[in-house]
Design a binder for these strands. Structure first.
Lengths: 109, 109
DNA sequence: CAATTATATTACTATATGGTTATATAGCGA
DNA sequence: TCGCTATATAACCATATAGTAATATAATTG
């Protein structure tokens, strides 16, 4: 379905969105948030990223609309706002798998 | 479905694949190839990219398994090998649209 | 208000990468 | 073999960005 015309402007925006996902640290954050909302301190524990670095990644994820944020007293709680990210990752993993098996098949010959 | 464990290694590989798509020039190439296979000269015309630059992008797309390549005499013909890229783009565009409408709604209030 | 805690931001460094020009390689025909 | 054309690669520069340490801001409590 869909397949909009893909103007240069749209292409640029889509590329920007892919860029947000093109970083292991950010994928890790999204993956951790899959279990449920977490505040920054909890995210530091779960991801092992340091505070400043994590904060920067969170700003990017938030700017891209991938997570939403809500202050709760001293804490800021982040939550997935785009479950569709995991559809994307699943497709990517599917590609990886197909290529891996294709590669294996190639070797087997 | 699926939702494999997402090891750090998998996360890194998925990020790498997203990185290939995180570039307007490469999305443009893929979009042009959607119409059918083209050789490099034709891709230069269609995309407006210069020869060396396009060639580098093509190497990345090929390394990522997004396109396949076949020599035909003097020419090298590139072809989409992963139609699933457009499922990805469609999801991204869907996100863009949802965010745009959400933004519009927010303004309207 | 002062002290404390949680988060965001700034400033900086190091690295990666896109674009360009020049050069190299590959395949074709004479 | 020698040109000629198509494509790939190398070398370079400029820019973007991830990581880090230090600092700033925000909210809470006393």
């Amino acid at each position: 379905m869909s397949s909009k015309p893909l103007t240069p402007e749209t292409i640029r925006e889509v590329a920007l969105r892919f860029k947000v996902l093109a970083e292991p640290a950010r994928l890790l954050v999204l993956n951790v948030l899959r279990e449920g909302p977490l505040n920054v301190g909890e995210l530091i524990e779960e991801t092992g990223l340091n505070q400043a670095n994590l904060s920067k990644h969170l700003q990017l994820l938030h700017a891209g609309g991938f997570v939403s944020r809500q202050r709760d007293g001293l804490y800021v709680v982040y939550e997935l706002s785009e479950a569709s990210v995991f559809a994307l990752c699943d497709i990517m993993c599917g590609q990886l798998q197909r290529q891996a098996t294709a590669h294996a098949r190639r070797l087997r010959r």
